[in-house]
Write a protein that binds this DNA or RNA. Structure first.
Lengths: 114, 114
DNA sequence: CACTTATATAATAGTATAATTATATTAGTT
DNA sequence: AACTAATATAATTATACTATTATATAAGTG
């Protein structure tokens, strides 16, 4: 086995995790699944910026997505290296602001209930 | 307490840890104290680059230094956040090449023994 | 089908990070 | 004191990252 390759892959993953915005996203995801629109509401960033952060975390295997209609929900991957799990555990729990798409507590669009 | 500040400080620390070269340095330091000259030998990088990486890790509180004559030895700080300890534990053990300044196994310059 | 909403992608500009070369500092040696 | 070796700092360049604006896609609705 190649040690340098291990270190490089750890570096790649830690660089993804180490960004302030992405850490905050991970902190929110500790509480469960969240839709993209919630991040757009919660962060003082443009929607494309949010989308690109989520893409990077998805590509790194940190999060998984679930699509429901136009909405996309992300959740933490439950198979993460222990050192990543430890980082996420160390993150503070953040206050939840409820987004329209979660107002029902059902995590699905209201329209689908009509 | 301010959650954003916690996240920001975690981000700052993870950015320091997440660099490939610095991760490799931390992997070497798992085996114990090392002098700067060893890093200069072991890495395919200029001496100033090594020095700057060590400075950042020192400033972040990841490592401690001990000066002995012209030589400077660094070791892991033994009081690190658990999530950092976990990262270091996950690093592979790297082969040790012995440097002149460690040839005695005493970690001190030969000249001081004269 | 035109319109709206949610999300993603592309192009680009701004900022941060790490590398190099050059130079300074500090300790030890002759 | 001059010389060498080890390390640090400064200045600069190159590269990588993140944010923005503009645009595309895809689903849902009237």
């Amino acid at each position: 086995m190649n040690n340098d390759k291990t270190i490089e892959s750890m570096s790649d993953l830690l660089k993804i995790v180490g960004d302030k915005t992405r850490l905050k996203m991970l902190a929110f995801l500790k509480q469960g699944e969240r839709c993209v629109c919630e991040f757009v509401d919660l962060f003082d960033l443009s929607q494309p910026a949010i989308s690109q952060h989520l893409k990077k975390m998805r590509a790194a295997g940190l999060i998984n997505e679930r699509k429901q209609g136009t909405w996309v929900y992300y959740r933490l991957n439950d198979q993460l290296p222990s050192y990543v799990t430890e980082i996420i555990q160390a993150l503070p729990l953040l206050e939840t602001k409820t987004c329209d798409c979660q107002a029902t507590g059902l995590s699905i669009p209201l329209e689908t209930l009509k």
